[in-house]
Design a protein around this nucleic acid. Structure first.
Lengths: 212, 212
DNA sequence: GTTAATATTTACCAATCGGTAAAAAAATAC
DNA sequence: GTATTTTTTTACCGATTGGTAAATATTAAC
């Protein structure tokens, strides 16, 4: 009998292991080719499994992506959740940037999976975004707005501030191929994330105007 | 006889018109589904043409993307080319940001096409990037480094500075679906680009530290 | 207006796509 | 060790994929 994601029956060891292997492989394939570009055969090969065997664990392509996105959105939003209203504003921003940069370094496939989804108009993610993501961002935007009202942060749009942190940090995962093509090779290999951290700290704290 | 991209024979009016229609349709489809996710039939329909008829003008999917990327890279690099070594540094940075933001607003499909390509590891773009793009960035990075050496700009990595301009501006095209999900609807519809421009000017000039 | 070149349609094709049925094999319960 | 359940394999399927051959229709040259 087929095991199902929504089944309440307890999962066997093999089921847990194989579902994990499959999601790992799916993350690899989806993040590089996008949902439509990925094939079930490809994922099966990457998971070291025959296609029918894979389809014994997941009902289809859609089911795999759903399993992936579900599991990932939470991890993905954690760095923003940690933004602490009671912390020192500039420190909080700085450490948020650091956490996002660490994510880009440690979870580049996850970053690219989300980017690929959103790039294609987020058809399978739209609801999650406009509920979970939006409510979290709304909440944190208020926190940031309060900081600005208290004069502890320069006044600007909290939403666009958050966007700029997302874009600058995720860039290092999503556009990695471009960095590799453009950066001096030794910088790319040895220090792109340290350099990024240092640069972004400068940018977000002081901007580019020389202090003199 | 089949007309070919590399043919030296002069193109007829119909050839010029139809190749244009096809590239326009291909831009639409490739930018939303990525190269692998796009189908020739889909492009043909979007171009209002039968598939064999389309394949009379382009030898295949690859040929279409090559035609697109070739034509687009130039346009895409123009804003950076205009960065003037003899201009006022902060003004030059500001107007470069403005040009990139205008591109994101006016050419979102082009932005997404490049993003999709790079996200997938830039297999069909790598050479162009590591030659054309790299040499242009190297040149402009030197210009920016000079400005910093002259004390006209805060000292930081010119490369990462350029990356941060790319990421923050292109974000408004590439992650549009996310903006739509997160921003208050009226802000999204009415003023996201104006708000972005104002915010980015603040960020890149002064950062987030309150001036007081 | 005839002719030669160009453009479009019709009818295909082999390969790959996502997915299934059912038998065989392996693991587990007792 | 046997019976039962779970897992894997083998052999498929219809639909869609990228692409072609050849006949037909249209356009342009003269």
């Amino acid at each position: 009998m087929k095991p199902r994601a929504e089944s309440t029956r307890r999962k066997t060891r093999i089921q847990r292991e194989n579902r994990e292997r499959i999601l790992e492989a799916a993350l690899d394939v989806f993040s590089t080719y996008g949902f439509r570009g990925a094939t079930v055969d490809q994922i099966a090969v990457a998971a070291g499994m025959s296609k029918p065997n894979l389809l014994y664990y997941f009902r289809g392509k859609e089911d795999m992506q759903h399993g992936l996105l579900d599991r990932l959105l939470d991890i993905w939003l954690d760095p923003l959740r940690e933004l602490d209203a009671d912390g020192e504003p500039l420190d909080e921003i700085r450490s948020y940037i650091k956490r996002k940069l660490d994510m880009a370094r440690d979870y580049p496939r996850e970053s690219r999976l989300f980017a690929s989804e959103i790039l294609q108009g987020a058809p399978r993610l739209r609801e999650l975004l406009s509920v979970q993501l939006k409510s979290l961002v709304d909440e944190k935007a208020k926190v940031i707005q309060n900081w600005m009202d208290q004069g502890k942060l320069a006044k600007c749009s909290p939403y666009h501030l958050i966007f700029s942190i997302w874009s600058t940090t995720q860039h290092y995962a999503d556009f990695d191929a471009q960095l590799r093509a453009v950066l001096p090779p030794e910088k790319y290999v040895e220090s792109r994330f340290e350099d990024a951290e240092q640069y972004l700290e400068q940018l977000f704290l002081h901007g580019l105007k020389p202090s003199i």
